Amino acid sequence: MEILAFGVQADEKPLIQQAFRGHHEVRCLDVFLNEDTAPIAAGYEVISTSVNAELGAGVLEVLAAGGTRMIAQRSTGFNNIDLKAAERLGMTIARVSYYSPYSVAEFAWTLAMAVNRHIVRASTRTRDFDFRLDGLMGRDLRGRTAGVLGTGKIGEAFTRIAHGFGMRLLGWDVVENPVCRELGMTYVPKEQLLAESDLVTLHVPLMPETQHLIDADALKAMKDDAILVNSSRGGLIDTTALVDELRAGRFAGVGLDVYEAEAGLFFLDKSLEAIEDDTLARLVTFPNVVVTSHQAYYTVDAVGQIVDATVRNVLDYRAGRRSENVLVPRS
């Protein structure tokens, strides 16, 4: 059987081909799955998709009509998939429930340190042989407060690093993590965490209950000189409200690896095109903001684990097995 993989990055392609070798043939495409590209999957029983695939009811219906019966998504998040439509169409949906949490946690810290110590501005200056220190003053993080919204595996990994920095630890989650407790974390209401934290980081999944978790009111509750980092899902932050606060001169730094309207932009080269997204265009102009293209997970360790899990998901589907990765079982 040949599998069709959408949205495959150049670095990811050899890992996917190697992982499937000896099991199934795989055809890798760099285009992302959406309503325009869905017809390409005609004749493929199994396809694999990336995190930015558009898997609403319309796309799923096109895939089902073309013979697709199983979708193996190469990500943990699945907010882009209409699971009810998939079930109605008799399609099996699987994801990757776990991969290296350190990849995302370490990158969140990379963003935090980049904005705190103005690394991007400093690097740009030195390339022009401007070695002044004006405007590059940061802050020690030791003794300051880190607020972690979401203390699952990634939040725990972030907390371990914060503990190493010697920070006071505040947490917020529906379920408390005993490891974070042992590290000295105090669980508090979200409003208290936002008001007291010098560094706020988001590590919760995107679902209706967490859409715009950081809205205008939440942003106003934060310290004027706080650092905000999001390496989870773009929809957790109301970006329009964030731009308004940045225009008012608030926040020491904002590090974003995700953006709520990133589909159709992130992972693509748009350098020769006019960006029609006014909010994103405004966002990247602020000197205290660093935006990256959803790369927090992108380490050889994490991607390798994602690919291996994807292969297992396909093999389980073919064998009629069900694992914790299955979101919609085989009918």
Rank of each mutant, 00 (worst) to 15 (best):
V115M: 03
V115Q: 02
N116T: 10
N116Y: 10
R117P: 05
I119P: 04
V120N: 13
V120A: 15
R121M: 03
R121D: 11
S123Q: 13
T126I: 15
R127M: 14
F129S: 13
D134H: 09
G135M: 08
L136Q: 12
G138V: 00
D140H: 14
L141V: 08
R142W: 01
R142G: 12
R144Q: 08
R144V: 01
T145H: 10
A146M: 15
A146R: 07
A146G: 00
A146L: 15
L149A: 15
G150R: 09
G150A: 07
G150S: 11
K153T: 12
I154V: 15
G155I: 03
G155T: 08
A157T: 00
T159E: 05
I161G: 06
A162I: 10
H163F: 13
F165T: 07
G166I: 04
M167W: 01
M167A: 01
L169K: 02
G171Q: 05
D173N: 15
D173L: 03
D173H: 06
E176A: 10
E176G: 04
E182M: 13
G184D: 04
G184F: 02
G184C: 05
Y187G: 03
Y187S: 08
V188F: 08
V188N: 11
P189C: 00
K190R: 14
E191G: 00
E196A: 11
S197Q: 00
L199E: 02
L199K: 08
V200Y: 09
V200L: 04
V200D: 08
T201E: 04
T201I: 07
P205L: 07
L206P: 14
L206S: 12
L206V: 08
L206M: 11
M207F: 14
T210M: 12
H212A: 13
I214C: 09
I214R: 09
A218Q: 10
